[in-house]
Every structure is written in structure tokens, then in C-alpha cells.
Design a protein around this nucleic acid. Structure first.
Lengths: 324, 324
DNA sequence: TTGTAAGCGTTATCAG
DNA sequence: CTGATAACGCTTACAA
């Protein structure tokens, strides 16, 4: 493939002039500009992007770290990030990790290696201290409800959202409430669980360990929850569920097992993804796509201001439907 | 950030030796190797990836072009691609296009610019001739049921799958069958529509234009279909629907409107995504994730063999449930 | 086993 | 407005 030097030679100008044309600099006579453009077209020239990146010292690429793409929450978040990235002429490099720390490290290493100008952690398994040790490597943004102020973070206020949900269940007469969360170790889940425990204490209920269920991520997990429900010594009257997919699986499994929702069992979930509408599940809307957009914006801001580390929280909203 | 020269100087070796250590070459005395590693650690060194890319002439990055990430079909496909990419140490660069040709061009331009070593088109708006003009730019793989043999292609046999579905509906006594497709201009939709028209002719039915519905992609579109159903002069007894999401929307809208499925209206869709299980929709399973895996494998093969352009088709399967 | 030096293809500085 | 030329940081003959 032809390079800039060859274009320069054939067009009878210097490489600097070619570079100027390439980058739309002013101060190039239209005659030379024309000559350069002609030669480029003739040789079917295209600049080598790696060389540009090396020379410029930046790439306009951003890494996104997520456990899985194929889950409505993450794919909507990613869509938001991607949409905003497009507006800023930023390319996205995806790190689908399955929560393997090695894959998360890879993203951080590529940040150090200047392949990407920044990283968004849609979720993480890596410890906070590890992230901290990469602070100097470049801008990092976290999609979590975190208390630190080293990195910008984007999320909803999980504690408040959970309290809203719990309060709503309680107002409907429920006290025996079970909770379904994703990865119990995750920052967000921890927040949610804390909120749950506090609220249960407030209404004078013991927190039964059999009522706290982890590893609830996909539709299939909803069935397991219902299985577990039947095995409980003391059965709850309501479930507060970390995401719509799991709630959807629960609805179906409940129906198969002859349980009536909400008569026998109330279900309140989070996200307000289309499936909750279909199944008429009462849910708390989370502006997932907006979170993605905000995350990318925060990253850009962080790139400009070394110390920008704001905690950004977006509003949520109860969507009353038929499952409570 | 320190560079290879500085490491060399401080470790008392040449840059080539440092490079050799970096790339795990043999022929480095363990003494010098140690010294180099020590210095790297001390300086917190990390190689500049852009320089590596420029020097090597390849990047181990692959572009993926898709209209939207946030749709079960594409996110599952992408997950498959990502999983396989991981096994080959390949990074993914995402081009979410919304079917805007400009965005698709961008991917091709980055291929020319050697930022990515290849491109997978999960779907496309660009004409085939345009793709052809980039043939020399690098390996390109198409996820479509195509007849060309310039590029490798991965898909199911849409005609056969559609015939399976139509045959099944017909075997259940349906003749007045309506069809819901995505983008009517897409290669896959065209195949499906052709199969539909042929089959209808075979059973001696006219193809009513009001029975052919396009732009059916998301859950919400399912409601529109039901609206349209009520407006039809001659109402079909069955629908064959391009994807589960739309079918799910239809199921719900049908129920709201007092239609019984499958009594009043049979619905057969494609994909076999979790939602179809939940709603007990009869569907034709498409191995979406496998398609993604196969696409990346084909790209790798194409990278090695300049002229590899096989048409790969994966099996599908009817999943009988309750909507027909 | 090691080192020298010539690329890789741009951008950017500085002098004209 | 234009052109030399020095970076950018790594890989890889080639020579020793």
C-alpha cells in the first residue's frame, strides 16, 4: 500500500503538505491540495491508522469491560455507550470478560499500552485497589454505585431504589420479603443487600438467610428461584428481584407450579426492559441506556480534567403493573 | 512513559534484547533476561501497542459491523464472536451502525487503514458491489445467506427454514398465512420472502400484499402487527414471524385484544431465544451464538487463505410449543 | 547469544 | 504557504 512519501513524490510536494491535506489544515494552496488529492485517488491511498496513532499519542478508542454482551442490561448499556461514542467519533473496543479477572486486566494493560484512551467498567470483578494501581494509566470510569472518589462513577442510587421497592411491597401488606440478587460480591448487589437488611430490621423482621438468593442473572435462574421457594421452611409472600429477566423466569415457573401472581406471590423487579411490559411485571425503571451515555460523557470529561471524579446518579421510577 | 530504549540503557543491553524478552524469544541469556525484567518492573514499563502494531503491520483486532447491539439476535451473535475472539487473542472493535451506510464505510476504511485485520458484517445496508470494492483491503466475512462466492458467508439456509415453518403451519391446516420480516431490503429477508411466495403459489394461494409486513424487529413492532391484522380485508389464520421478539409482542397484543393463540391465530417465529420459551411460542431454533463463532473462525481462515470463500450453513430445528 | 541500524508511516517543529 | 527533519516506540534483518 502506498504511503505518504510516495504520494508526496508523485504529487511533487513534501510529505508535510500531504499531511496537511490529510488533516484539512488551512495554509495549503488549492493547486497543491488538488494535486495531492488526485494522486491519493489514483493510488487508492489510505493512511495507516497505526502510524497516526503512534504519532499522535492517542487513538480515539475506548475500552468497555463487561461480563457478557448477551444480557438485556448490558446490551442496552453498551448501546448507550456506543451511541454516544459515535457522536464523539470514538471507536469502542469490547472486553467481554465473563468476570474473569485476567480479561479485565487485559483492558487495563491496553490502557497502559496506549491502545485505548480510556476504559469504562460496566461491571467488574477486579478489586478496587487493583483499579487504583492503574489510575495513572489513563481515564477509568465505573458503572457502579460506589463511595470512592478516585474515579467518576455512574449509576442509580441502589439503596434508594431498593427502599422504594421495599416500601411499595410493604405498603401492599408484605413483610415476608425475599430478595434475589446477581453476583453477591458486586458493589451494586452489596448496596442492595444492605438496604434490604436495614429495611427488614426497621419493620422488625429477622433476615432469614434462606430469603437471600444470589446468582440470579438470567431467565433460567428464575426457575431455580421458584424451586428454592418451595423448599423454604418459611415462605415469603413477596420477592424483590434484581432484574426483569429473572422475574420473567419466575413468573413462568410460578404459573407452571400453579402459583398465582400476585395472589400467592408478589414479584417486583428492576430495569423495565420490554419483557416486563409483556409479562405485566411491576418493576423499577432504570435508565440503562442513559447510564451508558453518561458513562462515556464522564470518560471524556475525565480525559480533559485529570481529577474529575464525580459520582453521577440518574433517576429511577416505579412502574406499577400487575405482579404486586 | 519509559520506552524500550530506556529499558535497554538501564539494563545494560541493546534494544533488540529487550524486544526479545518482550516477545519471549529464545536465545537470550537468563542473566540478561533477568536484568531486563527487573528494569521493566522498576520503571513500570509497558510497551506501546501502537508502535507494535505499526511495526508488525497487524493488530490482532477485528471489526464487527451490526445495526444495533441491543437486540437479542445481535447480542447473542456478538457474544459468540467475542467468545471465539478471546480464544484467538483477538480484540473486537464494534461498529454499531443503525444501518447507516456511513458507519459501515467507516469499518471498511479502518480495514484499509490497517487498524483492524478483518471485518465481520453481522448485517449490512451497503451494496454488495461496495463490499467488493474493498475486497483487496482485507478479509471480510458476511453473516448472511448469500449466493456470491467472493467472501465467506455464515448463515442458516433461510429458504429451507422458512419452508419448514410454512410446511408445519400448512400441516396444521393453515393456508391463509401472513409473514412478518425485518428490513425487506436485507439479503436474508429477501430469501425468506421468496420462499414464502413460492410456497404460497404451490398451495394455490395468492400472495396478498397486505399479508407481507416489513420493519418487524422489536417487541413493540409486534403490537403494530396485531393492529394491522385487524385492519386486513382478509385476515390470515397464521403468522410466520422473523424473530421471537416480534412474536412475543404479538402474543401479548393478541391476548389484550381477546384473540386466542393458537385458536384464532397461530404464530410461528424464529430464533428460540429465552422469551419464546417463557411465552410458549413455537419457534425455529437458530444457533445464533454458533453463527458468531463460525463467523470469526471463517475470518481467521480467510486471513490465512486469500481465496477462502466458503458458504457455511448451520442447522436449524423446529421447537414445537403452544402457539401453533 | 548479542548489538547495530534500517525500517514501519505518520505528525509536528521550525526555519524559510 | 512550504519543506526538511526529527520524533513516536517497536521489530527485524544482518552482522558479529
Amino acid at each position: 500500500m502506498a504511503n505518504i512519501r510516495e504520494i508526496a513524490r508523485l504529487a511533487g510536494v513534501s510529505v508535510s503538505t500531504v499531511s496537511r491535506v490529510l488533516n484539512n489544515h488551512p495554509y495549503v494552496s488549492s493547486k497543491k491540495r488538488e494535486a495531492v488529492l488526485q494522486t491519493m485517488k489514483k493510488l487508492d491511498y489510505s493512511p495507516n491508522i497505526n502510524a497516526v496513532h503512534l504519532s499522535r499519542g492517542r487513538t480515539n478508542m475506548v475500552g468497555v469491560v463487561l461480563p457478557t454482551i448477551n444480557h438485556p442490561y448490558f446490551s442496552e448499556l453498551l448501546e448507550g455507550i456506543a451511541e454516544e461514542a459515535m457522536h464523539h467519533n470514538i471507536q469502542l473496543v469490547i472486553f467481554q470478560t465473563g468476570y474473569h479477572e485476567a480479561k479485565e486486566f487485559e483492558a487495563l494493560e491496553q490502557l497502559r499500552g496506549q491502545l485505548i484512551d480510556g476504559v469504562i467498567f460496566a461491571s467488574r470483578a477486579l478489586s478496587f485497589d487493583t483499579l487504583l494501581s492503574y489510575k495513572a494509566a489513563g481515564p477509568i470510569v465505573l458503572c457502579e454505585d460506589s463511595d470512592q472518589n478516585e474515579f467518576p462513577s455512574i449509576s442509580i442510587k441502589h439503596v434508594d431504589a431498593f427502599n422504594l421497592g421495599l416500601g411499595y411491597l410493604i405498603s401492599k401488606g408484605h413483610e415476608k420479603i425475599s430478595i434475589c440478587l446477581g453476583r453477591l460480591e458486586g458493589t451494586n448487589s452489596r448496596k442492595r443487600k444492605d438496604a434490604y437488611e436495614k429495611k427488614m430490621q426497621m419493620i422488625g423482621r429477622d433476615v432469614r438467610s434462606e430469603w437471600v438468593i444470589g446468582q440470579c442473572l438470567k431467565i433460567e435462574d428464575g426457575k431455580k428461584v421458584i424451586d428454592q421457594y418451595f423448599k423454604m421452611e418459611d415462605r415469603p409472600t413477596a420477592f424483590i428481584v434484581g432484574n426483569d429477566q429473572v422475574a420473567a423466569g419466575m413468573m413462568t415457573a410460578a404459573k407452571i407450579n400453579g402459583l398465582d401472581v400476585p395472589e400467592d406471590l408478589a414479584i417486583l423487579s428492576f430495569d423495565n426492559h420490554p419483557i416486563s411490559g409483556i409479562l405485566h411485571i411491576t418493576t423499577i425503571h432504570i435508565p440503562t441506556k442513559q447510564l451508558g451515555i453518561a458513562a462515556l460523557q464522564a470518560l471524556i470529561r475525565r480525559s480533559a480534567e485529570k481529577e474529575f471524579a464525580k459520582k453521577i446518579t440518574l433517576p429511577f421510577k416505579l412502574i406499577e403493573r400487575g405482579s404486586v
